[in-house]
Computed example of a mutant assay.
Amino acid sequence: MKNSMKKVTTAILATMMIGVGAFAPVADNVDIFSQTSITAEAASVGKPTGLKSKTLSNSKIKLTWKKVKRASGYTVYMRENGKYKKVANCKSNTYTVKKLPNASRKYFKVRAYKTVKGKKVYGAYSTSWNTATNPQAAKGLKVSGTTDSTVTLKWSKIGCTNYRVFQMINGSWKQIATTSSTSYTVGGLSEGTSYQFRIRACKQDYRKVNHYGKYSTAVTATTTAAEPKFELTQSDVDRAVKELQQYSNEQCDFDAIFYTEQEMWDNIATRNLDNSSWGTPDTVSPDTYDSYDELYRKVKGHIDDLYRIIGKDQAHIVVYQQWHGDGSAINSDGKPAWEIYLLY
């Protein structure tokens, strides 16, 4: 009789606790009368705190949390398709979740339980924790092209947020770029020089923490030798003068191009021209061109522009090399250059 009264009293107390919103721990598969007894005995099951993780690989995540007093064990949950599902039970306050997809973001929760009369009675869930597995090792890295100052790298696409590009500099690997593409061009390199590169993938979790895959195999690339720069020779000068003279004569009825500085001054003297009748000179240096043909087209283009501005019947065009009209060098390093004047 007394035992029956105790059970009834316990049931009433439990019902009152639930009715006023007090937390009542839940046990697995227990009827209402047994549950009330277990609730009274296991009300001290606490909520796990301090949940955190360490990503061990591209398929393993180790979870840890603070121990809960008087807990018999813990249950680990992982969110799948919007719902938290049980992963495992464990006795310790740490658990490694395995066989996860690489470069995948995951949410976890943990709750403690106390075993009462062979049944698990659970406390509250911990705060959720998110993290991610590492990407797989970067693969397929190769050199797809080189110039005298650049190296272009390409690699295979894998699941990740971005890729990190590394270069061997002074005996150590240094990160030189971050890209979401599967190719990258490294610039500012020296001609005819060998360089080493490697990459690795990075996955960011929901907390913006980076998780890295293993490095790719390193590749070596050698930049090409620079093309020799075009240098204007005396033979080029003679040819240009002849061809430009012929071109100008076809445009006007008089010789409009003079080769040497002295010839220019002699011609000016016969025309009784003063400085006020000179147009602004237009200087064309050959140092920046790759061939004779490119230089000829450039000088010819300047002449055509001046003819269009002034008119072919209104002006002579004087082209000479090496020196300005005041005797100073056109090029500070003394290299030949063209300077074009209008005389009108």
Rank of each mutant, 00 (worst) to 15 (best):
T185A: 03
G118Q: 06
Q175C: 14
Y195A: 11
W155D: 07
Y122A: 05
A137V: 14
W155F: 09
T133K: 00
L100D: 07
C90K: 11
C90E: 10
T94D: 13
T146H: 05
A177F: 02
N162L: 14
K142P: 04
A132F: 00
N134W: 03
C160S: 13
S183T: 15
N93S: 15
A137Y: 02
G123M: 01
K174R: 09
A177Q: 01
K109D: 05
R105H: 11
K154M: 11
G140F: 02
N93F: 10
E191I: 12
C160Y: 00
I158A: 14
L189E: 01
S194F: 04
E191V: 14
K117Q: 11
P101N: 13
A112C: 08
T127G: 04
Y122G: 00
Q167L: 10
Y95R: 13
I158M: 12
W155L: 12
T150N: 06
T150Q: 08
G192R: 07
L100N: 08
S172K: 15
K99L: 11
L141A: 07
V186Y: 00
K106M: 13
V110W: 05
P101I: 11
L100G: 09
A132Y: 01
F166Y: 15
T152M: 02
T178W: 04
Y125V: 05
G187E: 12
S180W: 02
A177Y: 02
F166Q: 11
W155Q: 07
W155T: 12
G188P: 05
S149R: 14
G171I: 07
K117I: 10
Y163K: 04
F108L: 06
V151L: 02
S128V: 10
K106H: 13
K114E: 10
T182M: 04
W173H: 01
G118V: 15
K119I: 09
A177I: 07
T94R: 15
S126N: 02
V97F: 06
G187Q: 10
